[in-house]
């Protein structure tokens, strides 16, 4: 690895680390979005149809109550997967690409081995 490559790598890592630390510091200073005060799990489990969710707090209440105004999608699961958690879906597809590229590398090597064996066999004959 050459010197410039090392410098670029170190700079990238420092920038990423700085962004992470700054985001963590900001998030630690901000007020909590969910403290679970108004959630009664026993009540929700026993009478799910008559559960009052108007006073619930946090991101889950925003997703359920203001879904139509925010995303104009009539399916809450769909809007969570592709709007609220779009980054998540993108990372999921990148993981799929990485997995398929890795298995491509491994399985192609075995195919080459088979061809080599064929060649050696012909030479022996």
């Amino acid at each position: 690895m050459s010197g410039t490559k090392k410098v670029v790598l170190a700079l990238t890592l420092v920038v990423l680390l700085g962004c992470g630390v700054w985001a963590g510091w900001r998030m630690a200073g901000s007020p909590p979005t969910y403290n679970g005060e108004d959630v009664d799990l026993v009540e929700l489990y026993e009478n799910p149809s008559s559960y009052d969710n108007s006073s619930a707090d946090g991101a889950a209440a925003i997703m359920v109550n203001e879904n139509l105004e925010k995303t104009a999608a009539d399916n809450v699961v769909f809007s969570v997967v592709f709007n609220f958690r779009g980054y998540d879906t993108m990372g999921e597809s990148f993981i799929l690409i990485a997995a398929i590229a890795g298995s491509l590398v491994i399985l192609r090597k075995s195919a080459h081995h088979g061809k080599k064996e064929e060649h050696s066999h012909e030479e022996n004959v």
Partner: peptide
Amino acid sequence: CVNFVFAGQQVD
């Protein structure tokens, strides 16, 4: 990832 074209409609 936000809806930008058909704002306010049922199309996303």
